[in-house]
Amino acid sequence: MNLNIDNLWVLNVAGIEVWITETIFNTWIIMAFLIVLALIARLKLKSFKEIPTGAQNVIELVVEIFDNFATETLGEKLSYISPWYFMVFVYLLSCCLFSIFGFRAPSADWATTFALAFASFSLMIIMGFKHRKGEYLKGFFTPHFIFFPMNLIGELAKPVSLSFRLFGNMLSGTIILTLYYGLTPLFVQFGIPVFLHAFFDVIFGAIQTYIFVIISLMYVSGAASD
């Protein structure tokens, strides 16, 4: 546990320095884990039966819960983007759970959260143009065209606030655990941090993941449905 994001090694790609930080490395580990899980689920898909048993039950349950959740928030018409948010949900949840093992969570880096929030923002704009066309642009000029700068700032603040919320929450957990590990003697560092990890990583992480996804879904549905 460390407050700084360590730089592991530097690559030289065509004269440009590319820094491979702890965040990127941890992201790769999580990506590998999730890809393996997805491949296993894909291989199991061949042997799926009408009446589910064992692993099929779990996979169907998870996908169904998230699909229902997305359909409730977005409506039937827009629910085809729910796979993307399922990925975001699983990725953010595994980021939070990753820091239980003493590594730095990738979501405690603003780069990760801003990338996800910016993806949500782009998706919001694309969905708005796709489903409402000119109406979406017109929304910037309501109730009067004088309000255009205010509406624009309101839209641009969305990815910033979305990313800062998740980043700040994850960072606060990291800071408190770092302080605990740094300030206490060795004999209280076994067993007791479990409760801190459970509170700051598992509970906060799960709540913030849920909130990130539901607020993104609300932005998308606000932009795309009239």
Binding site: S161, F164, R165, F167, G168, N169, L171, S172, I207, Q208, Y210, I211, I214, I215, M218
Partner: peptide, 17 residues
């Protein structure tokens, strides 16, 4: 309630940042 709590928390998070 969770969404409302998250919205309220934003200003505290900005202070932390």
């Amino acid at each position: 309630m969770f969404v409302g709590l998250a919205m309220c928390e934003t200003s505290g998070i900005y202070g932390l940042l």
